[in-house]
Design a protein around this nucleic acid. Structure first.
Lengths: 247, 247
DNA sequence: CGTGGCATGTATCAAGGATACAAGGCATCT
DNA sequence: AGATGCCTTGTATCCTTGATACATGCCACG
């Protein structure tokens, strides 16, 4: 609700000045909040800390955003919009499936590079009504619509959108939960291709069965056997790790 | 760290009494907290409210759980354990893939019937260190190990576990974000089957269970690969012969 | 120059996490 | 038995933080 210092007519110079100033203050506050969020974590984002960082008094936050939730919504929206704006999206892609891949990757990348922001937007189910959340869904629906138009979808549009969203969300949150040394990029591509297979007609190439599967089976069954000595088993395990990883 | 009123010997009656009493108080507090959580939401779970509901003073919470986070961890663990205990899990399933389906469904069901608890456990990535989180992972790893032993896994065990976890997490959180009228159960089964396809092979890599069967399968698949040196392969072959003969 | 409306700034409230400190009970030791 | 010391219980209180009431003062308008 922008305030009005006049009842009618256009904006006076002063009015547009203050309106623009207000908008600029909003930006400054939001950016201060994002900075705090990514640098010191969610709990550091208190109305006071944000106010100080933006150089104004605590009550100003409430005048600009209503309440803290309003601030957080604005933060999510701004952060998301900034990320999307930085990556220019192809408005008319040649290959809609490749476009879907790119979009999924983009969404995941957003989560991985802005973990605190992503968590803010997607961790609690109740935040699904926020503007940023909806904006993401809108972009996704556009992609899905193009897929549908090209006849690539094997499921309903809405259904596809939810599947895509769910795999991405699971991928990001799970990735962020993993300790650094267990973060295998292949996880993301696997989940992505899994999603592609679920939503489109294109089936992934069936990888022929090498020794990896049998190696994994033997590795899992290894503790039960008594034929080999400890040392032998130790070395065998190492080889099996290599064979399993090779597939 | 349970307190000790004696240096040696077993527990005196009084000691076991107070220890048991303490344990019982803990339970009462946890159950009060779960009740508050599911009935009035996450924000209603204040140390004061929980204390009042359990009939004691606020500081008692800190003596029992250290801090609020400790309380929430205990709540998550208790809630999760109670759910798992209510569903008895087949310790030796016939069909490990069907078992994986059942396990995934169980995890998702937990999320859908205990949304507040689930959100508590799985919303913030930083909570991956909690006991309840780890307990869930343990159960999952057991299932994955059986799949591996049966030769069904098409990817590494850890890899599979993460994929399974991620799809389940995405499924639950997305489901909870959807308005009621858009919650299609087919979403869950689709995501589940997608996950199954990503993680398992249609044909198991081994014919017979146990180390011997796996060894035979690996021996059959071995000649073509180049991951191991000649000498390593030679020795491996000998061990596989012994393992195969052992069954 | 007076007046009214709106933004700014100060002071404060209320809720909640956390803790200090005193009071009391119980077992051990002499 | 009485003294002693530790551990538990209970009370009061602190500090942060979200939120708001109220006064002050600026500025345009008449």
């Amino acid at each position: 609700m922008p305030r009005r210092s006049r009842d009618r007519d256009g904006a006076t110079p002063a009015e547009s000045d203050t309106a623009a100033g207000r908008e600029q203050t909003r930006r400054r506050v939001i950016e201060a909040a994002i900075d705090l969020l990514e640098r010191e974590g969610r709990d550091a984002v208190t109305t006071r800390a944000v106010a100080v960082a933006a150089g104004l008094q605590p009550p100003a936050i409430y005048r600009l955003f209503g309440d803290k939730d309003g601030l957080l919504d604005a933060v999510a929206e701004h952060g998301f919009a900034a990320f999307i704006a930085a990556k220019h999206v192809d408005p008319d892609p040649q290959d809609p499936i490749e476009d879907l891949r790119a979009g999924w990757d983009l969404a995941v990348e957003f989560g991985l590079t802005n973990p605190a922001l992503y968590t803010l937007m997607y961790s609690e189910p109740t935040r699904a009504t926020s503007a940023a959340f909806k904006a993401g869904m809108e972009i996704l629906m556009g992609r899905v619509r193009r897929l549908a138009a090209g006849g690539w979808l094997r499921v309903d549009e809405e259904f596809a959108a939810v599947i895509i969203h769910a795999t991405g969300r699971g991928a990001v949150l799970t990735w962020l939960s993993l300790p650094e040394d267990r973060r295998d990029p292949a996880l993301l591509t696997t989940l992505r291709e899994t999603m592609i297979a679920a939503v489109t007609d294109r089936q992934p190439a069936v990888q022929e069965a090498g020794p990896a599967g049998a190696a994994r089976a033997l590795r899992a069954a290894l503790p039960e056997q008594t034929t080999l000595s400890d040392a032998e088993r130790h070395l065998l395990r190492e080889w099996l790790d290599r064979l399993a990883a090779d597939g």
